[in-house]
């Protein structure tokens, strides 16, 4: 009875689209198979670049490089009012979704979700995506070699969202 409203979205979409297809006399399962086959082919195309990317990112995470980097950059982020406790997480989030999620979890555990640090961390996590991953996957699928200023623009936006999250938490959440 007390089902979460959010849980309706996915089933409604899947059932809704199939039902809509039926009313338009689409051969739904044949169509599904055709689309799924295309999807499989895409993954096949993505395999080499994703393997390379994930290996490189895992090595980066385990090497302690992020600690060195966040020591370097925390004066900069502190200048913009970002608590330095979340700098490692913010640095990891454009590179590794899983990695930053586990750092987010430890921030919640250590400082609590309703502390200032926890709130800023929540906003950062809620307003960024894994930039490097998206750029790699989207371009690898169509074999683009030169991505021009894509990465620069994406990382600028990530930095912007880090600075803005501290700012907007200050003005929208009463302490």
């Amino acid at each position: 009875m007390a089902d979460n409203w959010g849980s309706y979205v996915l089933p409604l979409m899947v059932v809704g689209i199939v039902a809509f297809g039926l009313t338009k006399k689409v051969k739904v399962f044949d169509c599904f198979m055709a689309g799924a086959k295309k999807g499989l082919h895409t993954v096949y195309e993505l395999m080499p670049s994703i393997t390379g990317l994930v290996v490189a990112v895992t090595m980066l995470k385990e090497s302690g490089a992020m600690d060195i980097l966040s020591d370097f950059l925390s004066p900069v982020t502190s200048f913009f009012g970002v608590p330095e406790e979340i700098t490692p997480m913010a640095l990891l989030s454009p590179i590794s979704g899983g990695g930053s999620l586990s750092l987010f979890e430890s921030v919640l555990k250590t400082y609590g979700p309703d502390s200032f640090v926890g709130q800023v961390a929540s906003v950062v996590m809620g307003s960024t995506d894994t930039t490097l991953y998206a750029v790699t996957v989207y371009y690898a699928a169509v074999n683009i070699r030169n991505t021009r200023h894509t990465l620069l623009s994406g990382l600028t936006a990530d930095f912007m969202s880090l600075v803005l999250s501290a700012f907007f938490v200050r003005i929208t959440v009463g302490q």
Partner: peptide
């Protein structure tokens, strides 16, 4: 999603 979207 490839399959579902093909139907859509």
């Amino acid at each position: 999603w490839g399959g579902i979207m093909e139907i859509g």
